Simulated scan of single mutants.
Amino acid sequence: MKTIAIFTFWVSLSFGAIGWLALAGFSADCYFSPPATQNSVMYCYAVAITVSKLLFFIAAALVAITYLWLPWRKQRLAFLIVIVPGLLLLTRF
């Protein structure tokens, strides 16, 4: 069970990293090449936040399933990289 938990941890960490990259990439695209109208700008940022929310939700769900079987160091890493940002994105926006 522990090997499955560690594999799921790395998969969830990958989803979390892709979530961070999606948020940064889409936000940078909205910032450096802004659309013409204010509605287009809001839509651009809404897409960036929604895509990253979905990725963080998948990552947080996978980490929550395997959290108890992970070693202490991996629990801290999962908590700081996946769970905290995922909860902030899911509850704030």
Rank of each mutant, 00 (worst) to 15 (best):
P85A: 04
I65C: 10
A22D: 02
A64Q: 04
L77W: 06
A61Y: 06
L77E: 05
D29L: 14
T66I: 07
P34C: 03
T37F: 07
K53W: 11
S52W: 10
T91K: 00
G16N: 04
N39S: 12
I81Y: 04
Y43V: 05
G25A: 04
W72Q: 15
P34S: 09
F32T: 15
A5M: 00
L77Y: 06
Y31L: 11
A61P: 02
A36I: 11
G16V: 01
L90K: 00
F26S: 07
G19K: 05
F56G: 09
A48L: 09
G86S: 05
W20F: 13
P71G: 10
G86M: 02
Y43P: 01
A61N: 08
S14Y: 04
I65H: 06
F57W: 03
A48E: 03
A64D: 01
A28L: 14
P34H: 02
I6P: 00
F56L: 08
F9P: 02
F7L: 03
L54R: 14
C44S: 15
W69H: 11
L21F: 12
D29T: 15
W20P: 06
S14N: 09
I6M: 00
Q38E: 12
A59T: 06
W72Y: 09
V63G: 02
M1G: 00
W20D: 05
A36L: 09
A46L: 10
L90I: 06
L55M: 12
R76E: 03
D29Q: 13
I18T: 13
F93I: 04
W69Q: 11
I83N: 03
L90M: 11
P35A: 05
T3Y: 00
K53H: 12
A48C: 09
M42K: 15
K53Q: 15
W20C: 05
Y43S: 14
L87E: 02
S33Q: 13
Y43W: 12
L90N: 07
L88S: 09
T8I: 00
L54E: 06
F79Y: 07
S33I: 13
P85R: 07
F9C: 02
T3V: 00
A64G: 14
A24W: 11
I83R: 07
I4Y: 00
F32I: 14
L23Q: 12
F93K: 04
F79H: 09
V84L: 13
M1L: 02
V63C: 06
L68M: 08
A46F: 08
L80E: 03
A22K: 08
V82I: 08
A28F: 12
P85Y: 05
L89D: 01
V47Y: 02
Y67S: 05
R73L: 01
S14W: 01
I49C: 07
K2P: 00
V51P: 04
A64W: 10
T50W: 02
F32N: 13
R92Y: 13
A5D: 04
S33R: 12
G25V: 13
V41H: 15
F79W: 10
A78F: 01
F56W: 14
F32L: 14
L77N: 11
T50A: 08
C44M: 10
G16D: 03
I58W: 04
F56Q: 07
A36C: 07
G86K: 01
W10I: 03
P71L: 01
L54I: 11
L62R: 03
G86T: 05
L77Q: 11
A24T: 15
S52F: 03
I49Q: 13
A22G: 06
P71T: 12
S40C: 05
